[in-house]
């Protein structure tokens, strides 16, 4: 199996809570993300939009947390608040015990967007090296890390290709390699496979799970697919729109080496059912 990426040369030392995650997952109780009474209101010309309202959430180290809900329920906004791409208007949020702004400046998370967002003028390898250049790593180190992470996402041999020469699934894998390249302990993923077809998505889900098991990272994963959420997660956060809030938090303790086959099991279907019920409740509340 792939060795967990434990290199210690990431420029920003992680905050107090973020070290030693992989060392012992069993007692990894230190919270990576804590949100209390988190609210975010956009002022628009049509009046205020309550993107998030009174969100309380704890994410422990090593967890794989899915945020699920219909479009417009604020799940992406919540992820963006964690990443300091958006600022909450009320409540508190800590990332690794830090302000989101400070956590971002210390490069404590890797973010994977809905679209690959690879720069078309850079080769795949150079794209993976982009954050490393910005963080000022030496060239040899950059090349070594790019090679390692491209291999991790099965893109070995495509280093010198340009992104537009790859398929959509390969592009998204390259963007995951880019997020992994500086070895952040926290991985924020915003519907990374939303634009891909079902077959490719299944395959990438399997690969992502293996990656997570091997690296022991904390993952926050936004999706609107129930099977995807249930298959991947240790914890599922069900959200509902207008105002965006949390309806249900479902623990999901399938074995870490689960395969796609578990989607046929009664346990899986039971969890999926509960998620669906939660989503439905959120909707009836609103309509």
């Amino acid at each position: 199996m792939v060795e967990a990426a434990r290199a210690k040369t990431v420029p920003a030392p992680a905050g107090d809570g973020a070290t030693g995650i992989a060392a012992d997952r069993a007692k990894a109780a230190a919270p990576v993300v804590t949100a209390r009474g988190l609210s975010l209101t956009f002022q628009t010309n049509d009046g205020p939009v309550y993107a998030l309202k009174d969100v309380d959430l704890d994410i422990a180290a090593g967890e794989f947390v899915s945020l699920i809900g219909p479009s417009g329920c604020g799940k992406t906004t919540l992820l963006r608040v964690i990443a300091d791409l958006e600022q909450a208007t009320a409540g508190t949020i800590r990332v690794n015990g830090l302000d989101p702004d400070a956590a971002r400046r210390q490069r404590q998370y890797g973010y994977v967007f809905q679209a690959p967002g690879l720069f078309p003028w850079r080769t795949v390898e150079k794209n993976v090296m982009l954050p490393l250049e910005i963080f000022g790593l030496p060239a040899a180190e950059r090349r070594a890390r790019a090679a390692k992470n491209l291999e991790l996402v099965n893109l070995k041999g495509f280093e010198k290709k340009y992104p537009w020469q790859l398929s959509g699934g390969m592009q998204q894998r390259a963007s995951i390699a880019r997020a992994l390249s500086f070895d952040p302990a926290l991985l924020l993923m915003d519907e990374p496979f939303g634009a891909l077809d079902e077959i490719v998505r299944d395959k990438l889900n399997g690969q992502l799970l293996a990656l997570w098991a091997a690296t022991g990272k904390t993952v926050v994963f936004v999706t609107h697919s129930i099977p995807e959420a249930v298959f991947l997660s240790t914890k599922i956060v069900v959200m509902s729109p207008r105002p965006g809030r949390i309806i249900d938090v479902i623990d999901c303790d399938f074995p870490r080496d689960r395969t796609l086959d578990i989607r046929e099991t009664p346990e899986f279907l039971a969890v999926a059912h509960r998620v669906r019920e939660g989503l439905r409740a959120g909707h009836s509340y609103d309509d």
Partner: peptide
Amino acid sequence: MTTEAALPSGPARSGAR
């Protein structure tokens, strides 16, 4: 610390202030 690019991100929050 470095200064950051003041780039608009996300929806405009006109009048928020």
